[in-house]
Design a protein around this nucleic acid. Structure first.
Lengths: 251, 251
DNA sequence: CCTTGTGAATCCTTTCACAGCG
DNA sequence: CGCTGTGAAAGGATTCACAAGG
């Protein structure tokens, strides 16, 4: 969805479509579950159901990786787990730093899904001096002043931004300057980065707004009121209780 | 991305493309910022830059909503804010419940972006009896036993699941049975829901995995032609060539 | 037989480029 | 003029449906 702006036309090697890449982690998770239950093989139909997609799509996706299945039988679970992991770059482990240790940052630090998938939280960084030294998820928080040194010492190329919106671009710039080339942004802001740097964003309130759109549709399903003229009374001014708790701020 | 499976072919009224719907919140945020700075009008070019998209796309998106701009001038900020809010269903407010008040649930409860956008956290629900009554973000946590009553009393139609993966489907089923028709799922599981219920998921580790994929590509970039301009300071965090190959190989 | 792998058809999204209008 | 609104072209992604192969 939101990778860095116009990078090169298409990575030449074996261009795997972006939509397929986005689904590989899904397949990987379903396969891992099967693997844990010692299921030896799985058909595209079964795996697709477990991953919540349809089987034709899954087969097409796998066809970009190569021919890893056996006709009449299905896919070898262990082998596929390995191939997808390798394709995603998860056979090595990636040190990541999390910047902004509010509620959300702490949640991320504690999130088991990172560690179990080849990601290692190398450091937690926060601008609040009072946080410095305090352990979160067993890792001591370090002050922002150390950012460049931390990136450099740990060879970090992936950074997670969980600061308030106002601080995000600044943090981003420092991360990039220090050598980070992939950023996962939880702050509700558009980050601008130089070419070659990938940014993905997760925006909590946007997801809810999309749901609200569909919810509204459902509500007005029968007796479709075409009657809404245009009150224009945009009294919907930016409301009050904004500046409270940290984590992430609204726009 | 992940709305409920195949519901009706397309909402007949004025079918706004899904891709457009997903961008409306982005525009809304940029417009709100302009509104706060009392900017009266904005061109598609400027607004597109602020939202991080290109201007042709933005104009096409707006064209699905109607003709709200003025040629030679641009768009009236206040008016657009209102139109988009209305289209997204944000002129009413939506009571939501958050189930699973761990680190992530607490972060969500504290997240200002919800309240400021027409969403009201009606209740926090957790299965741990020890949490019951404890206030988080000023709202007392209630026990799961109360779930159905809470949904009913508050007329909640949107639920947020922030429980561990193992509990998610069960919670989902109860929410749906109680009348919730839109679910935002943070648990790393595929939820199955009946037709007519929308599910969107936010998966923290999937985003990182996608970044890792691209990061890996960048690392293998040099050695080939085009000396990319990107310093690529990544320090080669140890790591032999190809991790260990797992036991099973293909037939 | 059964299930994969894949051309071809279809559908959706983005981009182009310019006519049309304030 | 400048900027919107939009047909038309281009590019992706998804689905179909079936030949190929164990």
């Amino acid at each position: 969805m939101a990778t860095g702006r116009t990078h090169r036309p298409a990575t030449r090697s074996r261009g795997i479509p972006e939509a397929t890449v986005a689904r590989l982690p899904l397949y990987l998770r379903a396969l891992t579950a099967l693997s844990e239950r010692s299921v030896p093989t799985v058909s595209s139909e079964e795996l697709a159901a477990a991953a919540g997609v349809n089987s034709a799509k899954l087969r097409k996706d796998f066809s970009y990786l190569g021919s890893y299945g056996t006709r009449g039988v299905g896919y070898d679970v262990e082998y596929l787990v390995y191939q997808i992991s390798r394709e995603l770059g998860l056979t090595q482990d990636w040190p990541v730093v999390i910047v902004g240790i509010g509620n959300l940052g702490a949640a991320l630090a504690n999130y088991g899904g990172f560690a179990s998938r080849g990601f290692r939280v190398a450091a937690l960084i926060d601008a609040d001096p009072a946080m410095a030294g305090k352990p979160v998820a067993g890792i001591p928080v370090q002050h922002t002043d150390e950012l460049e040194k931390i990136i450099d010492d740990n060879g970090v190329s992936i950074g997670v931004i969980a600061t308030p919106a106002g601080a995000a671009q600044q943090v981003c710039d420092r991360l990039v300057a220090a050598g980070v080339t992939s950023i996962l942004n939880f702050a509700p802001t558009v980050l601008s980065v130089p070419d070659g740097v990938d940014v993905r964003k997760v925006d909590l309130s946007i997801e809810l707004q999309i749901l609200a759109f569909h919810e509204q549709r459902k509500a007005g399903e029968e007796a479709a009121s075409e009657a809404d003229a245009v009150p224009l009374a945009a009294k919907e001014a930016g409301k009050g209780p904004d500046g409270d708790v940290p984590a992430v701020m609204p726009a």
